[in-house]
Amino acid sequence: MTTILATDFWTSIMPNVVANKDVFIQSTWETIYMTLVSGIIAGILGIIIGIALVVTAPGGILANRTTYWILDKLVNIFRSIPFIILLAVIAPFTRLLVGTSIGTTAALVPLTIGTAPFYARQVQNALVDVDRGIIEAAEAVGASPMQIIFRVYLREALPDLIRTSVVTVISLIGLTAMAGAIGGGGLGNTAISIGYDRFENDITIMAMIIILAIVFIIQILGDLWARKTDHR
């Protein structure tokens, strides 16, 4: 035990990681910060757009062909833009919104815009899976559209929503690794601009291990939660 915890041991197998400990602590926080903030904003946007897609779709409880068509196309367009290009393309918009187009906070804007449409589709798929008959039964007892959205759709789809949220957060962590391109920092940036570019391979590997650990924790917690809420 003593040998594993000893600094000597770590210095011998990962010399550069030990030398750059502060960088790792900071970049881990940057990754968590970017994931959390853009995840929450994109989550809210995605749920709103996802719900709107379901209720305005043909045969939906608030069917509206025009709204559906516009939302559907917008989601498709933004989902089709490669993230690394999106980073650059929306830079002026980012500057307008947060005052700068470089740095961790600036990365939040493209991360949100890159994630929200993806999540909206996932939410849409989860909600569409709620049996039409259940919606009809709610309508038959006099539920309003808002009541159907909050008390039926979101409630019935909750296990699926949790599962798709996990998928979305994991893919969001993947996107944060690209944020280094606009000076966003984070573990991805550390892995490339320090580990890869300077041939300090232990840094690249450590960055990967930390990202994997974060992903596994989210996956396990998400699965547990989804299973707990699922009564089908």
């Binding site: 008959g133 259940i134 009809e136 039964a137 409630r155 909750l158 296990p159 009564h231 089908r232």
Partner: peptide
């Protein structure tokens, strides 16, 4: 209804 249409999560 034929298929009961109960809410599964309640």
């Amino acid at each position: 209804f034929q298929h009961f249409n109960l809410m599964n999560e309640r």
